[in-house]
Amino acid sequence: MLKYVIRRLLLVIPTLFFVALITFVLAQAAPGSPFDKNETKPLPVATIERLNRFYGLDRPVYEQFVVFLGNAVRLDFGVSLQRDRSVNDIIGQGLPRTAQLGVMALFVALAVAIPLGVVSALKQNSAIDYASVFLSTIGTTIPSFVLAIVFIYFFGVLLKLLPFVGWGDGLDRRMIMPTVILALGPMAFLTRITLASMLEAIRQDYVRTARSKGLGEQVVIVTHVLKNALIPVATVLGPAAAALVTGSFIIETIFSVPGVGREYIRSILARDYPIIMGTTMLYAAVIVIANLTVDLVYGMLDPRIKVA
């Protein structure tokens, strides 16, 4: 088990290396210097040269990459090109909010998706079944920013029920809409998976065996069906985490949540490469770790998978 964990952890390194390489190469491919943004009032050439020297942009590309990697290993992503702050500082400030948003959304998604998927599998063609089909269709097809717009229009503008700008500390009414909207996509996806794997598990021979033992329907469902049906659900939590990450920067931008996602979009529009690099590495790390965790949990849930 330990060996497996170590081997998987070691595989994370090349993956993150390639993510860094790709991002770095692409950032390098971008034409022009980050300091020539202001076209009407260009900086004096001497200033640009000084800035380039300061940020190490005058050195050969491979050297820059080595320096970047060396620093990245020490979790140092440098200084923002536009704002006089370190990347770590900017990310560090946004991270708790983004993490809170992500965790709350994941929790909401699971708390709705699993019961909904289970009940609609048990009560096929009932109102709940149709509700879950409706929810999963909407959640998987309509883009989150469109859902956000519709929610803002109804609950914020028309009904004036919920605020839709900003975030807060602890728990705040402003968190409701971003969390719910961010949760909808993974929720829909997880509902679909839960429903499908419940329907698959419920028609297995061992369920009939369980019934033939005289077990009550509830015991059959909980110990025999659910335990099998949730294994596929656990395996998609990795992709669900990825969906939350990509969803978060759209949602944070729309609802003005001061998190990493909004910084990411801001830095992209400003071509502030150190921040882009830092946040990309962060996102990739989150996804790699989520996938790794899911694999390990999968090994624990399903005795047929030999983790050794």
């Binding site: 692409l26 990509t246 882009i276 990309t280």
Partner: peptide, 16 residues
């Protein structure tokens, strides 16, 4: 697979 699709697309598009 470690790169969410959208993130990757965004980086390519921004750079170029």
């Amino acid at each position: 697979y470690a790169f969410p699709d959208l993130l990757f697309v965004i980086i390519i598009v921004t750079s170029l």
